[in-house]
Nucleic acid binder design. Sequence first.
DNA 1: TAGATTGTTAATCGATTAACAATC
DNA 2: TAGATTGTTAATCGATTAACAATC
Lengths: 212, 212
Amino acid sequence: METKDISRAIIERLPRYYRYLGELKDSGIERISSKELSKRMHVTASQIRQDLNHFGGFGQQGYGYNVKYLYEEIAKILGLHKQHNLILIGAGHLGQALANYVNFERRGFVLKGIFDIDTAIHGQKIRGIEIRPMEEIEAFMRDHAIDIAVLTIPKAEAVKIADELVSFGIKAIWNFAHVDLDVPEDTVVENVHLSESLMRLSYNLANSSVTD
Amino acid sequence: METKDISRAIIERLPRYYRYLGELKDSGIERISSKELSKRMHVTASQIRQDLNHFGGFGQQGYGYNVKYLYEEIAKILGLHKQHNLILIGAGHLGQALANYVNFERRGFVLKGIFDIDTAIHGQKIRGIEIRPMEEIEAFMRDHAIDIAVLTIPKAEAVKIADELVSFGIKAIWNFAHVDLDVPEDTVVENVHLSESLMRLSYNLANSSVTD
DNA sequence: TAGATTGTTAATCGATTAACAATC
DNA sequence: TAGATTGTTAATCGATTAACAATC
C-alpha cells in the first residue's frame, strides 16, 4: 500500500463518505459533483475534493464522480473488500447485542467465535455461534485466522486480556471497555467509549442554550 | 454559563481527563502535575494546561492540581452534577444492552422509560423499567421531565422519530442509528455510529503494516 | 467549442507545542 | 528563600478553505 501520511481527521470522515455514497447508489444516482455532495453532507466541496485526492483522482473534470466507482474505491481504501474474521470476548448484554448485529457481516466482518469467563453459559449459542471458555482463544485464533477481537468485558479484565490477545498475535482490537489499552505499535485499537460519548452529549446539552 | 468558543477537540478530550482523574482519585492520589498526567495519558503537558485553562485556573503554581477538586470541576463542566432523565427508543438487542448498563446511573443518567414499536413486548420490563408503546412518548416526556432520548432503532425510522421527539421538545438525542439526523440548532445530537468505528478499525488494520 | 467541475496550489484559519514570566 | 509548576503568550504546525488552471 502506498497510502501514507493520511491524517486522523480524514480517516474519521471516510466512513461517512462511504455511507453517503452507498445511499446515493441505492437510490439509483449515477454521478455526483463535490458541490452536490457538499450540500448533502454539510461539508465543503473543497474538503471533499482534498480528502479524496489523498487517495487518488477518482473524479473527472466537468463530470464529477461516478457514484458506484467511488463507492467501491472507498470500500477498498477502508479494507472492506477483504473478509475479516472476528472473535467476541465477553458475552454480556453488549456483547450479545453486537453478536446479533448481522449487518457487520454484509461488510465482510464475520463473527467466528464468542468467549466468556462464565462457565455457566459455555455451550450456549448466539446466532448459531457457540460461547466458549477463554482458555480456547489461542487455539481458536490460529484455527480460524482471526484478525479482529471485539472486547466487551469490564475494564478490570480488559487490560490483561488485551495483553494475552497481543501475545496470541491479534492484529486489531475493537475495544468497548472503559480503559485505554497499551498495545504494541503495530496492533490496531479502535475504542468505543460509550460513557465518554454520553458525557460529550451532556456537555453540549449543558452549553447548548448559551448564546453562541 | 460563560464558557464559549470551546473547540470540539477539547470537548472530545474532556471525558478522558475525567476518567483519568477518577482513577487517580480512586487510587488515593491527592495531587498531580500536568507533567505527570501527561506521562500517563500520552498527551503533552502543555495541552493539558491549555485545555484546562479554557475553563478556569484549577491548578496552583509549584503544586500542580488537586485531583479531587479537578475531578469535581470537570464533572461540573461536563454537566454531570445534574441528573438527566432518559428515555430509550427501540428495545432491540442494543437497546436492551444499554438499558441494562447500570453505570450510567452513577453519572446521573437515569433511564425512566423504554419505548418500542413492537406491541408483543409492551408491558415487559428491563431492569424494572416497562416497555411502552410509541404513542405514549409525548405524555411520558412531559410527566418525567425527559431531556435525553436514546435512539436504538433502524435508520429508516430514526429520522421520523427524531422529528417527533424534537416536536415534543427533546433537548438531546443519543443517536445509534446509522443516519445523520437533521434537527434544529438548539437540539443536541451525539452520534454513535458503530459501523463507522469498525470501518476505521478496518482502515487502520489495512494500513498498519505499512512503513510509516 | 463552451460549460462544468476536478485536481492542486496558495491563503487562511485553528489547534498544538514551546517557552517563560508569574507565583505558590 | 529556592524549587516547582502553573497560566499564558508566542511560535509552530497542520488542517481547512479559497482560488484557479487543467481538462473532460
